[in-house]
Simulated assay, not measured.
Amino acid sequence: MPAGEPSWSADLYAAALRAGHGPLYLRRADGSLLPLEVERWCAEADAVDLEVVRWCEGAVLDVGCGPGRLVAALIAEGRRALGIDVSDAAVARTVGLGGPALRRSVFDPVPGEGRWGTALLLDGNLGIGGDPRALLDRLARLLAPGGLLIAETVPGDIDERELVRVDDGRGGGGAPFPWARLGTPALLRLARSAGWRLDGQWAAGGRRFVALRSRAASRTAEQPNSTAVISSQRARNPSPESVVDAR
């Protein structure tokens, strides 16, 4: 999310991640506040998160990994995983949990482009950049042919694009940046038009998820998960560049 990077890497968000709690919000143009679940993000992966982990295939790219609970859970299960986030504080916390992570926008060059088995867009990260179609197109290029995208959606048939800012609810706020919110119906409409197909959808713990499959490879193409699973005997904290190696 190029336009949003300065706000997500600013003091309010970083301070909340370091403290492990909010309050923290996204303030919308009309003044209303969307709560950010900092406490849940900074906790260990819960049962709902672990169900997402079970859906994952091959090497996993957690886009907007935040403080790293999903990356840590994946590594603990012996999977290859990498978190990317525009916040130094998020990357530091992820690495502190034993998970490889890079300070990187999803729209910047990412290690293993075109070879990831699964990409994650959880905790509102479907909104990154304020243009879900551009984000879906970018993830299609990051995933291996036939790769899996697991996205978390908001309740209802919501399709919102607007400028928001990180806010502590006490008068402190960052610069505005574009953001989006999609419910499952809106995401499915957009995904179909962008060439994705539905692989599954479910709800758990008050949260909603959609699994989408990118275009499949040709018959002669390399299978996407041929080298994607890491042995549980390997190091728990590999370098980010070594997470995906399809050579």
Score class of each variant (00 low, 15 high):
153 T>G: 02
91 V>N: 01
85 D>Y: 11
9 S>Q: 14
103 R>M: 03
196 W>D: 07
185 P>H: 08
210 V>R: 04
233 Q>C: 13
179 W>R: 06
227 T>R: 12
221 A>M: 14
37 E>F: 11
194 A>K: 10
15 A>G: 03
65 C>M: 13
96 G>E: 10
44 E>H: 13
212 L>Q: 08
154 V>D: 00
123 D>Y: 11
82 L>C: 09
121 L>E: 01
4 G>W: 03
87 S>K: 07
82 L>H: 09
182 L>H: 04
72 A>S: 15
33 L>H: 09
114 G>C: 07
133 R>C: 11
108 D>G: 06
30 D>N: 15
41 W>H: 09
38 V>Y: 01
221 A>I: 07
108 D>R: 04
183 G>K: 02
57 E>M: 13
151 A>C: 05
162 E>F: 05
216 A>S: 12
132 P>C: 06
226 S>D: 11
215 R>D: 13
181 R>W: 12
202 W>C: 11
194 A>L: 10
234 R>S: 15
218 S>Q: 12
133 R>P: 07
134 A>N: 08
164 V>S: 08
239 S>I: 00
40 R>M: 04
109 P>C: 02
220 T>S: 12
97 L>V: 04
2 P>A: 12
44 E>D: 15
164 V>F: 09
190 L>Y: 11
203 A>C: 13
152 E>S: 05
212 L>P: 08
204 A>P: 09
104 R>F: 04
73 A>I: 13
96 G>C: 02
150 I>M: 06
191 A>S: 09
12 L>F: 04
132 P>M: 05
213 R>D: 05
113 E>H: 00
99 G>K: 03
170 R>H: 14
101 A>H: 00
198 L>C: 07
144 A>E: 02
240 P>N: 08
12 L>K: 02
74 L>W: 14
209 F>C: 12
85 D>A: 09
55 W>V: 09
101 A>Y: 03
192 R>M: 08
168 D>V: 06
114 G>N: 04
143 L>R: 00
151 A>V: 11
77 E>G: 12
143 L>E: 00
36 L>R: 06
141 R>T: 14
90 A>V: 03
94 T>P: 03
117 G>A: 00
128 I>E: 01
72 A>W: 10
19 A>C: 00
223 Q>T: 13
186 A>H: 08
177 F>P: 05
210 V>S: 01
241 E>H: 13
202 W>L: 14
72 A>E: 14
103 R>S: 02
148 L>P: 02
54 R>S: 15
225 N>W: 13
241 E>V: 13
186 A>Q: 07
216 A>G: 10
25 Y>T: 04
116 W>D: 00
225 N>E: 12
40 R>L: 12
160 E>N: 07
54 R>F: 08
237 N>D: 14
104 R>H: 12
67 P>T: 06
48 V>L: 08
242 S>Y: 03
245 D>G: 12
